[in-house]
């Protein structure tokens, strides 16, 4: 497969494994550019990429901006708090106004599931979903898969444990779709009220105890415990959560000896992961960030130009 015959990147759910391979292979070859002295290629020169973020982000937004700039594209960053959205402008009006300025690609993060899909159906620009509510975060899953493939050779047959607030996690959802498509065995684990009912229908196994989830895992993916959930009374205290569901030196031994530890960031040191593990030899957290730039460069490149 040498082309991505789609206009947008909205969700992992409707990607084929061949498309995922194409994106990962392309991303792998883009990594080298970020090691050069002049970290730039002229490929997207003259193209305009707008990042439209309705939710806070450092990592994802910066990653998209750097990716676009390394391809010589022009970037504009719009965050809702400093835009006319505070004056009550709707999402669709915002998008239509931007469309009139002829951008090429719009990257959107929004708290409502389906926001990116609305834009994709209304605008002729390519739309990339940088996270829509608790629904999907496709570029995160792609960079996670690239990292796993790099470290383990291939994704097929691996046991991947995803631990945390699965119900509210778009990272978990996208990774579940992607990893199962690529042949991994996915195990999800977390407090019972954070595991969606019937999640087994997504082809994953459920464990309610951390030790069971970690046993013989090749990859452990820790999710950020969102502090806002605590305020809603979903669990009694961070300390109690950490006692049962944190990854630490006592339980990491249950996983395979060459296990890799992942986290989408930002990490809550001492809550879902101890500093020792986060900074330790099994951790690939910072490599995930490096791969994030490469994956986003690959998507911008694959979605640009050409007949669709």
């Amino acid at each position: 497969m040498t082309e991505l015959s789609r206009k947008d990147m909205l969700e992992i759910r409707d990607l084929s494994s061949e498309e995922i391979d194409l994106i990962l292979n392309t991303a792998a070859s883009f990594k080298e550019i970020s090691t050069r002295t002049i970290k730039k290629v002229p490929t997207l020169r003259g193209k305009t990429v707008i990042t439209l973020f309705f939710e806070a982000s450092t990592r994802t937004r910066t990653s998209f901006e750097i990716a676009a700039k390394r391809l010589s594209a022009d970037t504009i960053n719009i965050s809702a708090s400093t835009s006319s959205v505070v004056k009550g402008e709707t999402l669709i009006d915002t998008a239509r106004n931007l469309e009139s300025m002829n951008p090429d690609i719009i990257v959107i993060r929004h708290s409502a599931a389906g926001a990116a899909h609305i834009l994709a159906s209304l605008l002729e620009q390519s739309i990339i979903n940088a996270g829509d509510g608790a629904h999907e975060h496709p570029t995160q899953a792609l960079l996670d898969m690239l990292t796993i493939r790099e470290k383990k050779g291939s994704i097929e047959g691996l046991t991947v444990a995803i631990v945390g607030d699965i119900a509210h996690s778009r990272v978990a959802r996208s990774n579940i779709y992607g990893l199962t498509k690529m042949g991994a065995n996915v195990v999800v684990c977390g407090p019972a009220m954070m595991i969606p009912k019937e999640i087994e229908r997504m082809d994953v196994q459920v464990r309610y105890a951390m030790d069971d989830a970690l046993r013989d895992a090749d990859v452990v993916m820790m999710l950020r415990m969102q502090l806002e959930r605590q305020e809603k009374g979903l669990f009694p205290s961070l300390r109690e959560y950490a006692q049962h569901f944190s990854l630490n030196r006592d339980n990491i031994g249950l996983a395979k000896d060459d296990v890799i530890v992942m986290h989408p960031g930002p990490i809550n040191r001492g809550v879902e992961i101890t500093p020792e593990i986060a900074d330790g030899p099994a951790s690939v957290i910072l490599e995930q960030v490096t791969n994030g730039v490469a994956v986003r460069m690959a998507l911008l490149y694959l979605l640009s130009g050409g007949a669709k």
Partner: peptide, 27 residues
């Protein structure tokens, strides 16, 4: 040196040929 990304026709079709490895060991 892989020149795919520097081609003057890189974006004219949807096809994206595989990008080879660029290895230039020093300035």
């Amino acid at each position: 040196l892989d020149i795919t990304l520097y081609r003057d026709d890189v974006l004219t079709t949807g096809k994206r040929p595989a990008i080879g490895g660029t290895y230039i060991p020093f300035p």
